[in-house]
Design a protein around this nucleic acid. Structure first.
Length: 294
DNA sequence: CACTTGACCTGTCCGC
DNA sequence: TGCGGACAGGTCAAGT
């Protein structure tokens, strides 16, 4: 599931691969994946140069010299994979790490042809989307208006983190971490990992988490996000980077998808439960709720 | 209003 | 082997 580290990894790859290229064609047969594809495309996409690749929350923005941007949300199974012309099939020399074969395949929703290759937007479950918007209006999307701060921004402090979480005092700390209006970019994997590292039970309400624990959670959240960035993200099932390579963070995950395995801290078996409607992984010894907690 | 749950999709896995 | 159903989770709409 693309969360902040995965989307940022894709962004870095695309920036390296696409910047300065000219778009030759863009094609999509999937109105749901690319709702406003039809007529604007020729005018504002074809013939324009790719001038920047940005990220806000879990959304990628591909800026074009026409003054328009392509926005992409990968949701759960989206991929943005670039293939150079006449390579040996895989860019970057890591064919053994690639999750995916020849493209386009049956999950390809949009194909953007550029001077030196093709960018494929694949999305098995079709939850993701691509949109064309004027660059100046891109961040006016309702989606962006309510999104919280970037957790790895230089000016994002422990004090701000606590203040953001405290916007939702009565909800569970896990639900607050997942709430994109509280904080941008955190999804199920890093919420579980950060809560484990800070030794906080995910079903504890925000107002019941001690301040010292919130401070620790801030540090640990940044730590797991940074570690994942260093490992190229988490490839649970579908996720690959801009060159089709898997990320290796899950090898380093302590609890996510590790139910029945020993806790690396205390040895007790990791348990999977349901919190905030999501599969949730904890160490039952290190992450406890008070007795009779409701 | 604050918060939780269900819908959107489709591939995969599990049990019969 | 085949089949039905549960499951995966980011976000928004609908429900409590």
């Amino acid at each position: 599931m693309p969360e902040l580290p995965e989307v940022e990894t894709v962004r870095r790859g695309l920036a390296e691969l696409l910047l300065g290229q000219t778009v030759l064609a863009i094609d999509s047969q999937f109105p749901k994946s690319f709702p406003n594809a039809p007529q604007d495309v020729a005018k504002f996409v074809i013939g324009s140069q790719i001038t920047a690749v940005r990220r806000r929350a879990k959304v990628l923005l591909i800026d074009l010299s026409s003054g328009y941007s392509l926005l992409v949300h990968l949701k759960m199974t989206g991929q943005l994979v670039y293939r150079p012309n006449q390579g040996r099939g895989f860019a970057g020399g890591h064919p053994n790490d690639s999750l995916i074969g020849p493209l386009p395949d049956n999950s390809t929703r949009v194909n953007l042809k550029s001077t030196k290759g093709n960018l494929y937007f694949n999305d098995q479950r079709r939850f993701g989307w691509m949109r064309l918007l004027p660059t100046a209006q891109a961040t006016d999307l309702d989606f962006f208006k309510k999104i919280g701060p970037e957790p790895l921004a230089a000016d994002f402090t422990a004090a701000k983190f606590k203040a953001r979480l405290m916007r939702r005092p009565g909800t569970t700390v896990k639900a607050a971490l997942l709430d994109q209006s509280v904080l941008a970019g955190v999804g199920n994997i890093y919420a579980d990992e950060a809560l484990f590292a800070a030794q906080i039970h995910p079903a504890l309400r925000v107002r019941d988490v001690p301040i010292t624990k919130l401070n620790k959670l801030f540090k640990e959240l940044q730590a797991v996000l940074n570690l994942s960035l260093a490992k190229g993200g988490s490839s649970d099932r579908n996720y690959v980077d801009a060159q089709g390579r898997k990320g290796s963070y899950l090898q380093f995950a302590k609890v996510f998808r590790r139910q029945n395995q020993p806790c690396p801290r205390c040895g007790q078996a990791i348990v999977k439960l349901r919190v905030a409607g999501r599969g949730t992984h904890i160490c039952p010894h290190d992450q406890k709720l008070p007795k009779d907690y409701k």
